[in-house]
Amino acid sequence: MPRGSPAARPTRPAVEEPACPSDLGEYPDLESVPYGGSEPLVPEGAVEITACEVPGTGSSPAGLSGPRVLTLGVSDIVRVINSLPSYQTGLGVRSPQPSGDARELRCTAVYRDHELAFVLRYPDRQPVTVYTDVNCRVAVSDGRGRGLDTALLTTFFDRYRTQLVARTPPESVPTPTCAGSIPTSRLRLTPDRSGLDDRISVDNPGQSPQLPTRLVAVTACRYEVGDSAARLTGQRSEWMDAAEALRPTVNAAFDRARTTTCGGYPGYPPPTAFDALLVADATGATAEFWLRRAPCPALISGKRTGVRPSDALVAAIDGLLGPPGR
Rank of each mutant, 00 (worst) to 15 (best):
D124H: 10
V165R: 15
S181Y: 05
A14Q: 06
P174S: 12
L211W: 03
V128A: 14
G66Q: 02
R125D: 14
T155L: 07
F254K: 05
A316D: 07
G319Y: 01
C107V: 12
P127E: 14
P183A: 09
V138T: 15
G234H: 04
C20E: 00
V93N: 14
F118V: 07
R199W: 08
L120N: 09
E171C: 05
G319W: 03
T154E: 15
L246G: 03
S59I: 14
D241R: 07
P21S: 05
Y27A: 14
V80M: 09
D133R: 10
L164R: 15
R12C: 09
R236L: 08
E238I: 00
Y87W: 14
E224F: 05
G56R: 14
V314N: 00
G284D: 01
V42D: 07
T305Y: 06
R231D: 13
P43D: 01
T190M: 13
D281T: 11
V110G: 00
P169S: 09
G4S: 08
T71D: 12
G145F: 07
Q97R: 15
E44L: 10
R159S: 12
C52V: 02
T261K: 08
E171R: 06
A229I: 01
G58W: 03
S65W: 08
F254Q: 04
V250C: 02
A117I: 13
D318S: 01
L148W: 08
A285L: 02
G45Y: 08
T175N: 03
D23C: 05
V69Y: 11
P170W: 03
A243L: 01
T162C: 09
V250H: 03
L291R: 01
A151Y: 12
R125F: 10
S38D: 15
R188N: 15
T286L: 02
S65H: 12
R94K: 06
D198H: 03
G322L: 04
S59R: 14
L148V: 10
L196G: 07
A242G: 02
R94Y: 04
S60A: 13
C296S: 06
L91W: 08
T233G: 08
M1V: 09
L72C: 08
A276W: 01
V33F: 02
A46Q: 09
T233C: 09
D197A: 13
D318A: 01
A315I: 00
K303C: 02
T108L: 13
C136S: 14
S86I: 00
A285H: 10
R94V: 10
V138D: 12
P170R: 13
Q235Y: 04
D197E: 15
P28Y: 01
S208K: 12
A280T: 06
T213H: 04
V134C: 00
V218H: 03
K303H: 06
S228G: 08
R3L: 07
T168G: 10
T249A: 05
R144H: 14
D158Q: 15
V218Y: 02
P248A: 07
R292A: 02
G45T: 11
P28Q: 00
D227W: 13
T168N: 14
Y265Q: 12
V69M: 08
A179I: 02
P212T: 06
R103F: 11
C262L: 09
R188G: 13
L30T: 05
E44K: 13
A257H: 06
Y122H: 11
